[in-house]
Nucleic acid binder design. Structure first.
Lengths: 347, 347
DNA sequence: CTGTTAGCGCCTTCAT
DNA sequence: ATGAAGGCGCTAACAG
């Protein structure tokens, strides 16, 4: 049994001949450019349909021969996950330059909306596309919309601003991620009952608050034996996270589960180990980094919820490119999954 | 802070001028073609290095202008996972024809090595690349090696033949997948002790036996309270799987965990439900299909170990294409991960 | 409104 | 061993 998936290769010229027009006219119809009589449009479209004609992308790219420039706006500071995304962008450099694509990275303070908004405004007109790790704030939303209005393609990365008119979001569903974390903590705790702690960077960050929301949802409805303590805020910093958690551990002897929503994992793990409870408390966090990898192997962490940083970097570039060229986006391919990573399926 | 990732766009002509030779000579050096004096080679290579020159892929593709043909050799029969791979290949058809790539699918009996080997032999000379869901058997290995010797690019898909000279394997590490399944069953069972059942398609299939190996490894070393029963074989068929499992459930009242290694999930779930033990037994299986999705949502299945079929289809095509063009393979991008899918992170 | 034409950057004969 | 020249299929001026 054999099954063929592709047609034979026609060219614009073939379509032109078949429709009784010239190359240029077919090209106009193909790109919905004005200046063609409706009737002619119909004839050409019919010929295109009839032959399931697909223009040769390589030829189109070559003829257009326009270098494109994209920019990634990333948080300043030592967040390991963000550094991984940048590292993967770096690994694409040969791929990028073979396609005459230029990618730049600018770092900025994402915790301050006005700084971020100003950084975005400054980009206007200089790039074909912008990928931004965004903060959901009216000023940022406005800056994104301004870019879009100016004809720049914009994708949000990791953290979305759904109320803006960004063209695409590359990242996970953070509510579902929180739910997944909740289900893991609940199921891995097992029969035991007790308290569950949450450490977040800041509840002002949309991704963090969404994760917490999802986590609490599952806890409340499915694990009545577990009671969730008020959220601690560690600003994604190791020291601060360690302090707040250490204090909490001191006050509650019956903590059986711990959800670390953001970064600061080093501090969280230290507080847990120093309290001598590394193995008794079910500890679920986010992202696979050198540190979380080690913690998973040691059995201190039980699971990491992860979004593949390499995939996010590549997806953001591909989506910006598709948008710039007016090609369709392969949604299935660009969708970022919520990965559950445990010791035995570490990538 | 700004960081630029790509150089400006030089062309072959620039390199030619800089090295004091003609276009054709640069092209020869670029592709390691013979007929250039060693000294000239060195000069040209130096110029290429110095400028970090990357040939424009679109131009190369256009100039070569050769349609490529690939073929996927897939198992006949109604395996839902394999059908998903084929479906995703179908979704790529526009992408494929825009690149003048032809992909065909042939179905064959993968349980019979001689049939599979014959099918592979029949392909020789007709394709630029072959992707095959393989069976690890001397006859199949020989057939793969013959193809390779004839200049065809070969990738194994889902199930590998590591002893062959295939160019690449697109699929997961099945031992690690089995270990992951084992860890999940063990941890989700929790404090309870009891027996664990395994249902496989056939222990003759390399992927199945590797999964079982990994599963047992983890069980033996980490969950001494659980004893693994002898492997049942259901040939990936629903009816047969149901029968053998139903019998086993009847004989053992203290089964607390179940690992379904291959397909036949419908039958496995039915046996479990009919015995009224759907919610007490921790049930881990493979792949996200319409059925396993439903079972996860119902709480009958607790987790599915999955390999993203869309990713496998696209990775196989991209790898074959890169091999055919002599481009580097992006290993990180093409690597297939072991996904843990539970109710809340269903894709 | 429609057609003609000169490239885009590389590969591939065919000469030299 | 090296160079010159004609495409590959599409786009974008520029004519008509």
């Amino acid at each position: 049994m054999t099954d063929t998936l592709t047609a034979t290769a026609l060219t614009l010229k073939d379509i032109a001949r078949e429709a009784g027009v010239s190359l240029a006219t077919v090209d106009r119809v193909l790109h919905n450019r004005p200046g063609v009589r409706p009737d002619t449009v119909r004839r050409v479209k019919a010929a295109i349909e009839r032959n399931a004609f697909q223009p040769h992308v390589a030829a189109a790219e070559l003829a257009r021969s326009r270098a494109r420039r994209f920019v990634f706006v990333m948080p300043a500071g030592p967040n390991p996950f963000m550094q991984q995304i940048e590292a993967y962008l770096g690994e694409m450099s040969a791929w990028l330059s073979a396609r005459r694509l230029g990618v730049e990275v600018v770092a900025t303070d994402v915790f301050d909306p006005s700084v971020l908004a100003a950084a975005l405004e400054a980009l206007s007109g200089n790039y074909d596309g912008v990928a931004v790790v965004a903060l959901d704030h009216p000023g940022v939303r406005a800056a994104i919309n301004d870019l879009v209005d100016a004809g720049t393609r914009v994708v949000t990365l990791v953290s979305d601003v759904p109320s803006s008119r960004r063209h695409h979001y590359v990242g996970i569903d953070n509510i579902a991620a929180g739910r997944t974390a909740g289900a893991l903590v609940g199921r891995l705790v097992g029969q035991r009952s007790g308290k569950v702690a949450i450490v977040a960077g800041s509840q002002g960050l949309r991704d963090h608050s969404e994760r917490i929301f999802g986590f609490n949802q599952v806890m409340a409805t499915e694990f009545p034996g577990l009671s969730v303590l008020p959220v601690l805020e560690g600003r994604d910093e190791d020291d601060r996270s360690e302090q707040v958690l250490a204090r909490l551990l001191g006050r509650h002897a019956d903590i059986v589960g711990l959800y670390n929503v953001g970064a600061g994992t080093q501090g969280v793990a230290k507080a847990l180990s120093d309290a001598g409870r590394g193995k008794q408390v079910v500890f679920v966090g986010h992202d696979v980094t050198a540190l979380t990898r080690r913690l998973l192997l040691q059995g201190v962490m039980d699971a990491a919820i992860s979004q593949n940083p390499g995939h996010e970097a590549r997806a953001a570039v591909r989506v910006l490119l598709a948008l710039a060229r007016g090609e369709p986006i392969l949604r299935e391919q660009e969708k970022i999954r919520i990965d559950i990573v445990m010791r035995d399926n570490l990538p």
